[in-house]
């Protein structure tokens, strides 16, 4: 067990490395607008790579994941889908708990711990979620978020195959979280891959309408996904008040005075 702890600390510092490197002047030049956690500065220096990955994911979703998820949705009764989702959420306990602690969020940490105890026993290995009914909702937390709260900038936006939206910091966080998750339950790789596939399939089957809605509603799905990710991460990391303040500063009153009857010089108009 001690070896595990040592390995953990090593991994933690490794995870911090890439994001620290990114703050170095050379790379910061290309990613300067990204050093602030912000939903409005959406500098995306790796956009060509990201768009390629995004389209790979989109194609995978269209031809494999979505049709399979529809089949799963058709075969599986809704309570079973919920049960599968609950089961995998319950297994995330060590990740949530450790990150609650690392963020100094003691009440959420206590809730995570109690939830795990209640749902694993009364909730029959996590298939049911009596804890939520007892006013102990899930306290999601991840190591990318922890790094963000410790002041690590997000770095450029990144899209990974299968996983989807991320950034340099959250990718490092994901690796650390994956380590916590696997080490806690000591599972074999095939079981891990199989269960991850089932988890993704099940999660996708619970979001059939949501994803279709996003496709229909968006003009550029890649940008819509990037913006949604940045907005959610901003609030997860900087908190509700900061997100609200930022919206008030940039979104709802943005250059409002300039909007009033501005004379448009002809040359500024786009050619018809």
């Amino acid at each position: 067990m001690d070896l595990h702890r040592t390995a953990l600390v090593a991994l933690l510092s490794l995870a911090l490395l890439p994001t620290t490197l990114l703050s170095s002047p050379a790379i910061a030049a290309s990613a300067s607008a990204e050093t602030d956690e912000s939903s409005t500065t959406e500098d995306d220096p790796l956009q060509p790579f990201n768009r390629a990955m995004f389209s790979v994911n989109d194609t995978f979703d269209e031809y494999i994941l979505e049709p399979t998820a529809r089949g799963w949705d058709f075969v599986m009764p809704h309570p079973v889908q919920r049960g599968v989702g609950n089961f995998f959420d319950n297994l995330l306990f060590p990740i949530h708990f450790i990150n609650n602690m690392l963020q100094g969020e003691l009440d959420p940490a206590a809730i995570s711990l109690t939830r795990f105890a209640v749902n694993t026993t009364v909730g029959l290995a996590g298939v049911f979620d009596p804890a939520t009914a007892l006013d102990m909702p899930i306290q999601r937390a991840d190591f990318g978020q922890t790094l963000g709260r410790w002041g690590t900038p997000p770095g450029p936006y990144l899209v990974w195959p299968i996983w989807g939206s991320s950034n340099v910091r959250d990718t490092a966080g994901l690796l650390v979280d994956a380590y916590f998750g696997v080490q806690t339950f000591f599972v074999d790789l095939p079981i891990l891959i199989g269960s991850t596939a089932i988890n993704s399939l099940n999660a996708r089957s619970l979001n059939l309408e949501t994803v279709q809605g996003a496709r229909d509603a968006s003009f550029d799905l890649y940008v819509a996904a990037r913006n949604a990710y940045n907005q959610q991460r901003l609030e997860h990391i900087k908190g509700i008040e900061t997100a609200r303040a930022e919206r008030n500063a940039d979104l709802y009153f943005f250059e409002e005075d300039d909007f009033e009857d501005v004379e448009i010089p002809l040359e500024e108009k786009d050619a018809p």
Partner: peptide, 16 residues
């Protein structure tokens, strides 16, 4: 769920 529609559409339109 923390995603402002105005912000989301603004970034899409800005890009296009």
């Amino acid at each position: 769920e923390r995603i402002s529609l105005v912000s989301n559409f603004r970034s899409q339109l800005q890009e296009i």
